[in-house]
Computed example of a mutant assay.
Amino acid sequence: MSTPAYHREHLRETLLELAERTVQRSGVEALSLRQLARDAGVSHAAPARHFRDKRALLDALALDGFERLNRAMTDAAATSGSFDVGFLAVASAYVSFAVDNAALLGLMYAVKHEADASEALVETARGSMRATIALITEAQAAGEVLPGDPERLAFVIFASVHGIAALATGDLLDGMSVEDATRATVDVLLRAIGTGSTHP
């Protein structure tokens, strides 16, 4: 069976797209390299050129997810001049990614915590936390956030925002919209870390 030029050149991206679609639709258990090869229209052996086994595929899928999440949060942080607006934008970016990619996000964190997770994955997974720490550090320097350990503050912020994402994906917001829940959480966090203001 000859592999079309499209697949030869872009097979890795095609397999990742198909794998993510499968995870979102049917869960990780439904994922198989053999089935992905069939879906991509290539030989059963073709995926091995990029992923030695399912574990390597999951690692790559998680890495791709964290790279996309990091880009979304970094882009959100760069959209405004004030900390309050930037903070809400970053929190909203995280929650939106979680809601739109619930199954993928679960896989991302599960694979990250595996003992044999790649160094690239573990390092990339820290990107969103680094972005949050940088945002806080800059705001502290500008007098918009009270002094304190920025890593500790970032951890509390992440726990709170991730909690809203978990409630949203579990349909546990009790009628409140995702946007309102995110805004309410950000408002409380902003008061707690000392800005003295909330996003209007």
Score class of each variant (00 low, 15 high):
Ala165Met: 05
Met129Gln: 09
Ser92Cys: 06
Gln35Ser: 10
Asp100Leu: 06
Val28Ser: 11
Ala46Pro: 09
Ile133Leu: 00
Gly81Pro: 06
Pro47Leu: 14
Leu146Val: 08
Val186Met: 10
His50Lys: 00
Glu114Val: 13
Thr3Asn: 06
Arg8Ala: 09
Ala159Gly: 00
Leu153Trp: 02
Ala125Ile: 06
Ala40Glu: 04
Arg52Gln: 12
Ala48Cys: 07
Asp64Gly: 02
Ala181Cys: 13
Thr185Glu: 15
Met129Pro: 00
Val111Ile: 11
Val188Met: 11
Ala134Asp: 08
Gly143Trp: 06
Leu107Cys: 02
Phe87Trp: 07
Ala102Thr: 02
Asp174Trp: 07
Tyr109Phe: 14
Ala56Ile: 10
Gly65Gln: 03
Val23Tyr: 11
Glu20Ile: 07
Val111Arg: 09
Arg183Thr: 13
Arg34Cys: 05
Glu20Met: 04
Ala139Pro: 10
Ala37Gln: 14
Val161Ile: 15
Val90Asp: 00
Asp84Trp: 05
Tyr6Trp: 15
Val161Gly: 02
Asp75Glu: 14
Arg52Tyr: 08
Ala120Ile: 07
Met1Glu: 09
Arg25Ser: 15
Phe51Leu: 08
Leu18Met: 07
Gly148Asp: 03
Leu31Asp: 11
Arg191Met: 10
Val23Phe: 02
Arg8Asp: 14
Gly127Thr: 12
Ala117Phe: 09
Leu11Ile: 08
His113Leu: 15
Leu15Thr: 12
Arg49Trp: 10
Ala142Ile: 11
Arg126Met: 13
Met1Leu: 13
Leu69Ala: 11
Ala46Asp: 04
Val42Glu: 04
Leu104Ala: 00
Arg55Ala: 12
Ala56Lys: 00
Ala62Trp: 08
Asp174Asn: 04
Val178Ser: 06
Gly196Arg: 02
Asp53Trp: 12
Val161Pro: 00
Ala131Tyr: 02
Glu13Leu: 06
Thr74Trp: 11
Val186Asn: 08
Leu173Pro: 14
Arg183Met: 03
Ala115Thr: 13
Glu144Arg: 12
Gly81Met: 03
Gly170Lys: 02
Leu57Ser: 04
Ala103Gly: 06
Ala102Arg: 14
Ala40Met: 14
Ser177Leu: 00
Asp100Gly: 06
Gly170Thr: 03
Glu138Cys: 05
Ala89Asp: 13
Ile164Pro: 01
Asp59Thr: 01
Asp64Ala: 11
Val95Met: 01
Gly65Tyr: 01
Leu63Tyr: 02
Thr169Tyr: 11
Val90Thr: 04
Val28Asn: 10
Gln24Cys: 02
Thr195Met: 04
Ala184Cys: 04
Phe155Ile: 05
Glu29Gln: 14
Thr182Glu: 03
Met129Val: 14
Thr74Tyr: 05
Ala98Trp: 05
Asp171His: 07
Arg191Asn: 09
Gly65Arg: 11
Phe97Trp: 09
Val42Ala: 12
Val122Met: 12
Thr74Pro: 03
Phe155Asp: 04
Ala181His: 06
Asp59Gly: 04
Gly106Ile: 11
Asp116Lys: 03
Asp53Leu: 09
Arg126Trp: 14
Arg152Cys: 11
Phe87Glu: 00
